[in-house]
């Protein structure tokens, strides 16, 4: 093997590309970054479950009509490590504001990002948009 070929092989083997590798499975497939949503309302239920948690929020439209929104988020372990205390940080009856992105399937389903709690504190309930969907660059070259 001559020097040039060896150099080329070495170069090919060390080309560095930052590949987004995120857990858990694809939020980006289910939720649409182009449909951001912010709602304020009253917590009706919190499911601290795996693989993802859910928080349900009653949102009034001012005309006497109330819609129950469902927001998906991190699993309980990740919530614990980002500062959440189960049954302490947020409880049914609390008035909160949630930001996130709506589901591609429509309806009142969304992927949560930040929750503003009654005392004004803000905590992340979910990851950034697009998580788990492969990012902008595939692992292989596009022909």
């Amino acid at each position: 093997m001559n020097r040039t070929v060896r150099l080329l092989l070495l170069a090919a083997a060390t080309v560095a590309v930052a590949t987004p590798l995120r857990a858990h499975h694809s939020f980006g497939a289910e939720y649409d970054v182009n449909q951001p949503v912010t709602v304020s309302g009253v917590v009706t239920k919190i499911e601290w479950t795996n693989p993802h948690s859910f928080v349900f929020v009653d949102v009034a439209d001012g005309n006497g009509s109330v819609t129950n929104w469902k927001f998906e988020g991190y699993p309980p372990n990740a919530l614990y490590r980002t500062g959440w205390k189960r049954d302490v940080s947020m409880k049914p009856g609390d008035k909160i504001t949630v930001t996130g992105w709506r589901a591609r399937l429509g309806g009142n389903l969304a992927h949560s990002r930040e929750i503003t709690l009654p005392d004004g504190n803000k905590l992340f309930f979910g990851p950034p948009a697009g998580t788990g969907d492969g990012g902008n660059t595939p692992a292989v070259k596009v022909p």
Binding site: A12, T14, P20, L21, R22, A23
Partner: peptide, 24 residues
């Protein structure tokens, strides 16, 4: 980034996406 608290927005956004060095 994913799993971050956001307490220091200037901190690296997502260690996972920046860290893994791989060839195509």
């Amino acid at each position: 980034g994913v799993g971050g608290t956001g307490k220091d927005p200037a901190a690296p956004a997502n260690p996972a996406s920046q860290q893994v060095i791989t060839a195509p």
